[in-house]
């Protein structure tokens, strides 16, 4: 058994501040990559909508989600981004807020999954294959999948913050940085969620 002090904090002898700043930069660069992916999805949506090749944008039977349903699916991202920001400023409520964030994200994830499980524009053809009716349906399922991916990742981060809060053997300075860095990700998921929800309001 051995002990360590913060002077041995990092294998390359960096201070928590250095590591914290670096991690924030890294997360923001990953957000750029994710942003390009999100932009590509929005581009696909409007490209195919406006092209409307063979009049195939809207499903044959006209089944689409309502414009508001997309907003419900991403609302948890927005709520979590806001309450996390408040909690970082007022540390006394951080523990409560982090647990609340986990619950909100879990509920949002369930709602997104429920939407995907009940979409009416997918059916099985005579040959037994799934068929999505129209390009709207194809794009919708992709956007919903992207939201789901964001939910999984964000829930992991929120859960980590909740578990780590007030643990004695977590470096306090670095943890503060990580909470702020997580805030960058939460803000991004809210922005991307809004962008995707806004996209799906343009149905016809």
């Amino acid at each position: 058994m051995a002990t360590h002090t913060d002077s041995q904090f990092h294998v390359h002898h960096d201070s928590p501040e250095q590591i914290g700043r670096r991690e924030r930069l890294g997360v923001r660069l990953l957000i750029v990559a994710d942003g390009a992916f999100v932009f590509g999805m929005i581009f696909s949506y409007f490209y195919l909508k406006n092209l409307n090749s063979n009049n195939g944008w809207i499903p044959v039977k006209g089944h689409t989600f309502t414009a508001i349903s997309g907003w419900w699916a991403i609302a948890p991202f927005v709520v979590v981004a806001i309450i996390h920001r408040l909690a970082v400023r007022n540390r006394s409520i951080f523990g409560l807020v982090s647990i609340l964030a986990v619950l909100i994200l879990a509920a949002g994830m369930y709602y997104q999954w429920h939407q995907m499980a009940t979409m009416k524009f997918m059916h099985t053809n005579d040959a037994g294959d799934n068929v999505f009716e129209g390009a709207y349906a194809s794009n919708w399922v992709l956007l919903a999948g992207a939201n789901m991916f964001h939910y999984i990742l964000t829930l992991f981060i929120a859960l980590g913050l909740a578990i780590r809060h007030k643990r004695a053997h977590v470096n306090a300075t670095l943890e503060t940085w990580r909470q702020r860095t997580a805030g960058s990700w939460f803000t991004w998921t809210a922005i991307s969620g809004i962008a995707l929800a806004l996209t799906t309001t343009f149905i016809r």
């Binding site: 195919l48 009049n55 294959d129 068929v131 999505f132 009716e133 129209g134 390009a135 709207y136």
Partner: peptide, 11 residues
Amino acid sequence: GTGFYDANMGG
């Protein structure tokens, strides 16, 4: 069974 690139399905 999506149709991003299938012109028959609006792709």
